[in-house]
Amino acid sequence: MGIAPRVVTILSLTFTAALSVPTAAIAQQPTVLRVNTFPTASYSPILVGIANGVFEKRGMKVELQFTPNSDVQREGLAKGAFEIVHAAVDNAVAMVEMAHEDVVIVTGGDTGMNEFMVRPEIKSIADIRGKNLVVDAPNTAYGLLARKILKNAGLVDGRDYTLKPIGGTPLRIEAMEKSPENAAAMLNPPFSFSAKDKGLKSFGRAVDLLGPYQAGGAFVMRKWASANGPLLERYIAAYIESVRMTMAPESRAQVVSLISTRFKQDQKVAERTYEVLVEPRFGLAPDAKFDMDGFRAVLALRAEIEGQWGGKPPAPDKYIDLGYYERAMKLLERR
C-alpha cells in the first residue's frame, strides 16, 4: 500500500503529458488559403495537388474558387476575398496600372494555350468585319491577344468590329453559339476542344501567331506577401510539386479524370486537353517557371494595343518578385 502515492503521481504525469498532445495537434492545424482561378485546364495542377494532399503536407488547406470573369477576380483580390490568384498575369499589370493596387506576380504557369476561334460560317479574318469579338475584358490579357491578331490582319476594334465583354471561356463559347454576330473569341482547353466538336473553327494558336507570351501565373497583394512570406513560399513549393505530378506520365489517368469531372467534359475532350497540357512550349511550364521574354511580350502588347506608357513598355521589375519562387525551390531541394 505504501507505493500507491507514487503510482498516482506517475499516472498523473502520464495523463498530463497525454493531454498536451491534442493541444500541439490543434496548434498545427492547416492554414486555410483561398485561391481563385478561372475554370480552365491551365490550373489543373491545383486540382491535382488538392486531390493528392500535396498542399496539406506543407501545412495548408486550399479552398479553390472559380471566377466568372477577370473584373470580379481583380476586385476580389484587392478587397481580400481571397489570398492568391492564378490567372493571366496581365491582370496583375492591369491592377497596378489601372486600379493602382500594389500587386506582385510570384510565379509563371503556362502560355494560356489559346486559339483564335471563329463560328463555322467564318471563312477568313475578313468575315469578322461588322461582327463582334467576344472577350473576357476588352483591355486585359487574352482580349489584347485577340485584338493584336485582328490588327495584324488589318482589322481595328471600333472601326471594323465591336468588342463585346462576356466573361470567361465557357461564357464566350455560349455567346458564340447563340448569335452569329458573336463571330470570334480566344478560347483555351478544355473548352477549345469541345468548341471544335460543336463546329467552331480555329484560325491558329496564339503562340504560333504572335510568339512567346507569359500567360497564367500566380499573383498576390504585395502587403500580404510581405506579411506571409514563409506561407507563400510553402504554397509555391506545393504548387510546383503539383505541376510536376500533373506532367508525370503516371498521373495521366487521374488528370484526365479530374478535367472531365470538374469541367464537365467528356473523356475524349479531357484526353486531348491532357496532351496539350504536357506539350513543350505550349502547355504547362515545367516547375511553373516564369518566362521573362514572354512577360516582356505582355508589356509590349499592352503598350501597343492600349497605348499605355506612351506606347513604350516599362521594365518588368516593377510587377514581379521571384524571390518567393526561388526560396520555394530551395524548400524542394531540401527534401
Rank of each mutant, 00 (worst) to 15 (best):
V85I: 07
V93S: 15
T162L: 15
V93P: 07
K178P: 14
A137G: 02
G108H: 05
E63C: 11
M113T: 04
D160P: 13
V89N: 09
F82N: 00
F116A: 00
S70N: 11
N114P: 00
K164D: 05
Y161P: 08
V118D: 13
I173H: 03
V156G: 06
E56Q: 10
I173S: 04
E63R: 08
L155Q: 00
A78K: 12
F116W: 05
H86F: 11
P165M: 12
R74G: 10
L163E: 00
K123I: 08
V106D: 15
E75L: 08
H100V: 07
V103M: 14
T162H: 15
M176I: 11
G80V: 07
R58F: 07
D136K: 12
F66S: 02
S179G: 12
N152Q: 06
H100I: 04
V118F: 08
V85K: 02
R159N: 01
T169I: 10
R58S: 13
L144Q: 02
V103R: 02
V96K: 01
N114Q: 07
N139H: 13
Y161N: 11
R119N: 14
V106Q: 11
G76A: 03
H100L: 11
A78L: 09
A146N: 03
N91H: 14
T67G: 15
V89P: 03
K57F: 12
S70M: 09
R74N: 08
T162C: 10
G80P: 15
N91K: 03
R58D: 06
S70I: 08
N114G: 02
V96Q: 03
V156R: 12
A78I: 13
I122M: 09
M113Y: 07
S179E: 04
N132L: 08
K123N: 11
Q65S: 13
L64W: 10
I128Y: 05
G167C: 13
G154T: 07
R129A: 03
E56K: 03
K61W: 13
P138D: 09
T111K: 12
I166V: 14
H86I: 01
S124G: 07
E97K: 00
K164F: 07
P180L: 14
G167F: 14
I122R: 01
N152C: 13
K178E: 11
E97I: 01
N139Q: 11
G80L: 15
F66G: 04
F116K: 00
D136M: 04
Q73M: 06
E56T: 09
V85Y: 03
V156K: 05
L150R: 10
G143M: 12
I166K: 03
D71R: 07
E174G: 01
R119G: 13
G109H: 09
N139F: 02
D127C: 10
V93G: 03
S124M: 06
E174K: 11
R159M: 08
K57N: 09
E63W: 14
G130F: 06
A99V: 08
D71P: 11
A88C: 06
F116Y: 05
F116T: 00
S70H: 12
L133M: 05
T162Y: 15
E174D: 04
A137D: 01
K178V: 13
V106G: 13
A183K: 12
F116E: 02
N182I: 00
L144S: 02
G109T: 10
N182Y: 01
K178F: 05
K164N: 13
L145N: 08
V134M: 05
R129Q: 09
I84F: 05
E63N: 10
A153T: 10
